[in-house]
Amino acid sequence: MIRTLIIDDEQHARDEMAALLADTGEFELLGTCANAMEAIKAINRDHPEVIFLDVNMPVLSGFDLLGMIDQERMPYVIFVTAYDEYALKAFEEKTLDYLLKPVEPDRLEMAVRKIKGALEGGSQQSFETHPLTRIPCVTANRVRLVDLNQIEYVHSDLSGVHVVGGGTESYTELTLKILEARSSLTRCHRQYLVNPDQIDEITLLEHGLAEIRTRSGRRLPVSRRYLKRLKDLLSF
């Protein structure tokens, strides 16, 4: 059974896709997601082998989503779209396959064969990644895209990843690892990324530790391991 996730903002489209997948008898459906935020969370949590991904979704499109997932956890991607204007782009992004809505069962069978081949071959998908300039954040039940230059720092704890900046603190589904790899945010501690543009002062402490003060006066710890990199970056 192939562990799979359906991502589509329309309820009926998710239901139909689920029914079609069930008819093939090849898939274990881990869940369905109504938007990219839910999808990032589900992918990071459930590690699906393949996702059926709608292109047109609110706030973050299917393409945006791919840029926010860790390469090591990247499932195989089958795009599902109502209109073929995205087809070309989908191939550029080296997705495994794409399906047009309404999906024909025969066409789905073909996709299944491709998925199986890829899973057996263990071939790696590589997506061109673009640097993130806006980070999707949840505040008060609303998803908004926060400009990177407004962010002071990001830190993770047991409850998740917190984005601090612009006078507010919000929550994101993106991991520190992805944020570090795809943006100009810099690691200063196992649990902290800082925006170098927002650093006001660095105080060196005993035992090779340090402390950053951001422009708004917040203090972040710098661990020994990352201090040298920070020094190189800021050349001091």
Partner: peptide, 18 residues
């Protein structure tokens, strides 16, 4: 038309089941 039409048809196909 195309986007709206295909999405609508897809919706109707799903609704027929239930």
């Amino acid at each position: 038309n195309p986007h709206f039409l295909f999405n609508t048809l897809n919706t109707i196909i799903a609704v027929i089941r239930t």
